[in-house]
Simulated scan of single mutants.
Amino acid sequence: MNYDELRKNARINMNNVCRGCKRCDGIACAGEVPGIGGVGSGEGFIENVRALSRVKLELKTLHNVKKPDISSEIFGENVSFPVLPAPMAGMKSNFGGYFTEYEFASILANACKELRLMYTSADGPDPNMFNAGIEAIKNTGVPSIVFIKPRGVKEVIEKIKVAEEAGAKAVGMDVDGAGLILMVRSGQEVGPKNTDELKEIISSTSLPVVLKGIMTVEEAKIAYESGAKGIVVSNHGGRVLEAAMATCDVLPEIAEKFKRKMAIFVDGGVRSGVDVLKMLALGADAVIVGRPVAIAAHGGRIDGVKWLLKNYADELYQAMILTGTPDVHINSEIECFGNNILIKIKERGTWRV
């Protein structure tokens, strides 16, 4: 199995909704929402990939890091490496209808269980989308974060209770879904959340609450002061606001203020284990990957997802050797030169989420 095979099979199985591009960069699918692309011109998606490619690492091989430790801990769960599949749903509208919602959720949940990773489940306009992830969690027992759209407070709390009963390790709300037109048109309540609403939601559960879609220091501060235990630096894969900044560009400032205060996750444009290392060095505690995982699932089911994620782990391990990085709790400095960012990885870190 290799990525070319996965891409070819996925292109067929997704009815060409995804072209299975060699470089998944958002250009061929620009504007295809619903679908797998970025909204409008697609620049939000494209810039995530483009900006991360401008981040460079110092090559270092005269050191004692011979066997780096890529394992981590997320909300008390030991994981083999700090990568999670993104919460994804909408099989018919976004991915061509090859899988049912439950089939897709089950593939990802089982792959995570076998690889000792944390799974994330999704929510969406169709109730089957949320229910599929819950059933996958129940049937596998995989450690998980259950994400809920920014619905009305009462409905969010009801869904949190469902997540608790399913055995979730944490719950999340993808607040960047506040303007999802498909949900608004179907009469479902989604929208921004003020501080009082956040506090009511967060205080309703003993589980850690993660807010996904945080792109500024100001909103990270609101999340922290409202009681959130984690945030996801995310622009929803460029699928909600065409002109959004790239996640890797805003991550360092957010991490500078809130590292060790909250768990910091990030998504957007990650296409390799080297990209995972870049995001960790920019300040993330763990990295979330979306479209490549969906391609791998459609191209090779569980084996495809496992192959992709194992490949990321191998690439991360190799990159850590070649940068003198002993473990994933990274301390680094950032320098700018021209249009590029250079990351200088320093001594061992100690923080675990």
Rank of each mutant, 00 (worst) to 15 (best):
M1C: 10
M1A: 14
M1N: 09
N2W: 06
L6I: 14
L6Y: 06
R7Y: 04
R11M: 07
M14G: 11
M14N: 05
M14L: 15
N16P: 08
C18V: 03
C18I: 02
R19E: 14
G20I: 04
C21Q: 10
D25N: 15
D25L: 03
D25M: 05
D25T: 02
A28W: 13
C29G: 14
G31N: 07
E32P: 04
I36C: 13
G37N: 07
V39I: 15
S41I: 11
V49Q: 05
R50V: 03
L52M: 09
S53M: 09
S53P: 06
E58A: 13
L59Y: 14
H63Y: 11
V65L: 01
K66N: 09
D69T: 06
F75W: 10
F75A: 00
E77S: 01
E77V: 15
V79F: 11
P82C: 04
V83P: 08
M88R: 08
G90C: 13
G90Y: 07
G97K: 02
Y98V: 07
T100V: 08
A105Y: 04
A111I: 04
P125C: 03
D126E: 15
M129R: 08
F130W: 08
N131T: 13
A132L: 10
I148E: 03
I148P: 06
K149G: 15
R151Y: 15
R151L: 14
E155D: 14
E158N: 15
K159I: 06
I160W: 11
I160G: 05
A163S: 09
A166Q: 07
G167D: 11
K169I: 05
G172W: 04
M173R: 03
V175N: 00
D176Q: 04
A178C: 08
G179H: 01
I181N: 12
I181P: 02
R185M: 15
S186A: 09
S186T: 09
Q188F: 05
E189C: 11
T195I: 12
E197M: 08
I202R: 01
P208C: 04
L211C: 01
I214S: 03
M215Q: 05
V217Y: 02
A220F: 03
A220D: 01
K221M: 12
I222E: 13
I222S: 02
E225Q: 14
E225N: 12
G227F: 08
G230Q: 11
G230H: 03
V232E: 12
S234Q: 13
H236W: 08
R239W: 03
E242K: 00
M245D: 13
T247V: 02
C248A: 03
V250C: 04
E253F: 09
A255F: 00
E256L: 13
I264N: 04
F265S: 04
R271N: 10
S272H: 04
L277M: 01
L280A: 00
A286R: 05
V287C: 01
V289L: 06
R291V: 00
P292F: 05
A294S: 03
A297M: 10
A297F: 11
G300H: 11
R301M: 02
I302D: 02
K306P: 00
W307R: 12
L309Y: 12
N311W: 01
E315V: 00
Y317W: 07
Y317S: 02
Q318T: 09
A319C: 04
L322H: 05
G324K: 06
T325E: 08
D327R: 12
D327V: 00
D327T: 06
H329E: 15
H329Y: 11
N331C: 13
N331R: 15
N331G: 00
I334N: 08
G338D: 07
N339A: 14
I341Q: 07
W351I: 09
